Amino acid sequence: MSLQDAFYGTVHDYPGGCESLAPRMKTTPAVLRNKANPNSTTNIPSLQDADRAMALTGDFRILHALCENHGHVAIRTDAQGDSGDLAVLELVTHVWAANGNVGAAVDATLADGRVEVRELKAVRAAIYRTQQAMLSMLARLEEMAEPAAEGR
């Protein structure tokens, strides 16, 4: 996903859209709408705009787009709540689903016997989601890990 598309989605998917988010971002709805407009060449969102939008909305598409564009994966590192067996099982099912999405994306790419650059976008996004799910599962297991006993 492009950064501009991620910013657009973050702004417009916020409840009430630009009109509700703009005052919280200390700007006008018109300026925020222009910054979110992928066709605008005059109002460009700054890093501060992106940071503020993510903080206010809790929507991290911008962060994930940045990571994906540069070969990184973002996962939450703060406490994620329940670390019990059911929570880990839920994360395992997310990994399975994400792996299935990778397979489906690769299958769709290869269906016509050719791999086109435009098709790789879906494969890349599916792989990113799989990496994210696996790292989230690892983080949860690390939260559950007991310290090694001395002498083992």
Rank of each mutant, 00 (worst) to 15 (best):
55 A>L: 05
152 R>D: 15
71 G>M: 09
141 L>Y: 07
121 K>S: 15
56 L>M: 12
149 A>I: 14
123 V>E: 07
60 F>S: 00
44 I>T: 11
122 A>H: 05
127 I>C: 12
150 E>P: 15
115 V>P: 09
19 E>I: 13
25 M>G: 07
33 R>I: 04
95 V>Q: 11
38 P>W: 01
108 A>S: 12
117 V>M: 04
135 L>W: 09
87 A>V: 10
139 A>C: 02
73 V>L: 00
9 G>L: 13
86 L>R: 10
68 E>H: 11
102 V>R: 06
71 G>F: 07
13 D>S: 15
128 Y>N: 13
129 R>Y: 03
83 S>I: 12
129 R>G: 04
57 T>P: 06
73 V>R: 00
44 I>A: 02
142 E>P: 01
49 D>R: 09
112 D>W: 06
113 G>C: 03
122 A>K: 07
20 S>G: 01
35 K>E: 07
93 T>F: 00
31 V>C: 03
130 T>L: 14
103 G>D: 12
84 G>R: 03
124 R>C: 11
37 N>A: 06
145 A>H: 10
44 I>L: 08
25 M>T: 09
136 S>V: 05
109 T>W: 03
96 W>L: 13
85 D>G: 08
65 A>P: 14
113 G>W: 08
96 W>N: 11
86 L>D: 13
127 I>Y: 06
93 T>N: 00
46 S>H: 01
74 A>T: 03
53 A>V: 11
61 R>M: 04
149 A>P: 06
14 Y>M: 08
9 G>S: 09
38 P>D: 06
16 G>R: 00
104 A>D: 12
149 A>L: 13
43 N>P: 00
57 T>D: 06
3 L>S: 12
71 G>Y: 10
19 E>V: 14
16 G>K: 01
135 L>N: 09
118 R>V: 10
102 V>G: 05
121 K>T: 15
25 M>H: 09
147 P>G: 05
69 N>Q: 14
9 G>V: 03
87 A>N: 05
93 T>C: 00
100 G>Y: 10
68 E>C: 12
120 L>V: 04
54 M>H: 01
10 T>I: 08
27 T>S: 10
2 S>M: 03
45 P>D: 02
28 T>F: 09
133 A>Y: 04
38 P>M: 04
150 E>M: 09
75 I>E: 01
128 Y>F: 14
97 A>H: 07
121 K>Q: 15
11 V>I: 15
44 I>M: 03
91 L>H: 01
29 P>I: 11
41 T>Q: 05
115 V>W: 08
140 R>N: 05
129 R>M: 13
19 E>Q: 12
51 D>L: 11
103 G>E: 12
125 A>N: 10
99 N>Q: 12
147 P>N: 02
150 E>V: 13
15 P>L: 10
37 N>S: 10
151 G>N: 10
37 N>Y: 05
65 A>L: 11
121 K>Y: 14
114 R>L: 12
99 N>K: 07
48 Q>A: 12
113 G>N: 02
37 N>L: 04
134 M>A: 15
35 K>M: 14
147 P>K: 02
43 N>M: 06
19 E>R: 12
133 A>D: 02
39 N>A: 14
41 T>K: 06
21 L>V: 13
46 S>N: 01
129 R>F: 05
139 A>E: 02
117 V>D: 13
7 F>A: 04
44 I>F: 00
131 Q>H: 09
72 H>I: 06
2 S>E: 11
